[in-house]
Design a protein around this nucleic acid. Structure first.
Lengths: 157, 157
DNA sequence: TGAATTAGTTTGATAGGCAAACTAAATTTG
DNA sequence: CAAATTTAGTTTGCCTATCAAACTAATTCA
């Protein structure tokens, strides 16, 4: 409609930027509410993400998980206490080094993990709805671009 | 290399999902650090986003901004006090209704706003690096998909 | 074996958030 | 028009999440 490519690009930049700023908060809010309505209403979204970080199969240590989530060890201890008390995780003392604690999900924890994964999968599916493989690849490429930029920025800043 | 389209799609879903989960936290961390290194080191990322919500031109009220940011009025008052004390915003009593306070950025606040916008613009540019207009449109479409899904999910959940 | 290091916990302090009570101004209503 | 109600923003009291530093127990180094 007489709109130049340059104008189109500029408005797209702004649109994409503004939308992306909103999207994350919306997702967190939806997750929070869907947990509240589920059988797992005794945990919050941060504890949910801790369960996700511990993961289905790994036996990560407290320090490893603290590093992944960029939380202090003290904060992690507090949250692990909550999740253990509520039956989502267990602490397993490591045989080789008894200072070390390996974290595992209980079956209840694994149920929660899978429910959360399902939500994320649904999210990405709707994000990619109606796109063919080439188009999905393109979006993948955009995300790789972004990640590279962020990693470079992390070093500089 | 013999990988079926379905498999490709599935691994892409997971990749995209996992990356998106990380990206937001990384962005917040970079923003936080870049503020710390800038001339605006006396504010934090939440106050930065409050400045962004107030915006360059609008004269939003306290209640409007509280609603936009989904914060209680009390929380907003506390943060506005900090930004006002530090010279980023001013409160302007509304002539027509003297209960109402309109929020405005000071020149210092506008400088901060523009610095933050520049970062976001750089972010989106790198996100879209090397893409032509059609491809940018596609990504725009993907974000619209996601937003529609989220809005629908918001109603349901 | 004693000293230094390491993994995780405890402790004390701080910050950010909310809900409810409150103040001042505007609007409705009898 | 005066009293009652509503509204915008502030104040208050409380709660939760987080961190850093001190601490404990186990391991490794010298």
């Amino acid at each position: 409609m007489g709109q130049s490519a340059a104008n189109l690009r500029k408005s797209d930049y702004k649109f994409i930027s503004d939308e992306l700023v909103d999207v994350y908060d919306i997702i967190l809010r939806i997750e929070e509410r869907s947990i509240r309505k589920s059988r797992f209403k005794d945990i919050n979204i941060k504890q949910m993400h801790l369960v996700h970080a511990i993961g289905l199969h790994s036996k990560k240590t407290t320090s490893e998980v603290a590093h992944i989530l960029k939380l202090s060890k003290g904060t992690l201890t507090a949250n692990l206490n909550i999740l253990e008390r509520k039956g989502y995780i267990i602490r397993v003392h490591n045989h080789n080094d008894r200072r070390v604690i390996n974290l595992k999900l209980t079956s209840k924890g694994r149920l929660l993990y899978r429910a959360h994964s399902a939500f994320h999968q649904q999210l990405v599916k709707s994000f990619l709805k109606g796109f063919n493989d080439d188009e999905v690849k393109l979006i993948r490429k955009a995300i790789i671009n972004l990640r590279e930029f962020l990693d470079k920025a992390s070093e500089q800043v």
